[in-house]
Amino acid sequence: MSDQTPNPNDMNNAIINQWTQDELDHMNLFEAFNFDNHGQRFGLHPIYRLPLLALSGSLVGGVSGMMYGYQLGGLKYLAMNAHRMPTDRNGWFYYHKRKNFVCLKDSFVTGFRQAAKVGLLVGTLFSLEAYFDYARGTIDFANTMMATTISGWIYANAYQLSSYQAKSLVKRGAGVGLLLGLLQDASNYLIGNDVWYLRVFFGINPRLSRKLS
């Protein structure tokens, strides 16, 4: 870190930017990573956070989709072969061998589809959240609520749900957004970030002082 600290009375934007760049140039990789992520949701800048969340959503959606696809494939195979069930041991052996192949194929197909859908939905949701964080210049639950509400509206229109179903989905999205946003605000407070409404309305300042040295 540089030992020369600019005089606040003489500082302008150019000096601040140059001083900040000089500080960054002297940081090691870990310090620069912490500086870049300071004050962000989950302690991660959107550049890192969004791909991780989308990937996590894809993994969860893929695993659940594979499980569902395997079960559904078994039911379909049973329905297709109910009129010609095996009558001997060899027949049952090949029946189950073929069934396992069909179920695995259906599980992978359904898993990939579900992974793409969930990954896209999660990526869209948290990208909207990050955009509102940037546009409003503050990080709080309101941005999460707006992101989940808009995501619910997009989902309802994409699948052409009825007006009643769309309204219900949007309302549930707002409720989920409120809960998720408050949980994120609590997480931000615990890791030492400033939660503005706690400070303004309740006088609760950040619990940790995270200064780079």
Rank of each mutant, 00 (worst) to 15 (best):
A174V: 11
N12I: 11
T124D: 07
S213Q: 14
A82K: 15
G61H: 03
Y70M: 06
F202M: 14
K99Y: 09
L104H: 14
L178C: 05
L212H: 12
T87I: 07
Q40A: 03
A135M: 05
T87L: 00
L212M: 04
S162R: 14
Y77G: 00
E129A: 03
L121M: 09
I16G: 13
P46W: 02
Q4S: 11
R136K: 15
T144W: 08
D133T: 06
E23R: 15
E129L: 02
Y48R: 15
N193C: 00
N193K: 04
K105G: 14
D106P: 02
S162N: 15
T148V: 08
K171W: 08
H45G: 10
N193T: 04
N188H: 03
L120I: 09
L182W: 07
Y95M: 02
T110V: 02
G43C: 07
N90H: 06
N37H: 07
K211C: 09
L190S: 10
W19G: 04
G61T: 00
A166S: 13
Y94P: 04
A158G: 10
F126T: 10
K99L: 01
T5M: 08
T138W: 13
L169R: 15
G123S: 01
F33N: 13
G123D: 05
D106W: 06
L75C: 05
A79N: 15
G192M: 02
F42N: 15
L198Q: 07
M146Y: 13
H83V: 02
G119T: 02
T148N: 06
R113T: 13
F35L: 08
R113S: 14
S209F: 09
L24T: 13
F141R: 05
G119L: 01
L125F: 11
H45E: 15
A130H: 03
Q71T: 12
M146T: 11
E31P: 08
S213R: 06
Q184W: 05
V200M: 10
V102E: 12
S209H: 07
L128N: 13
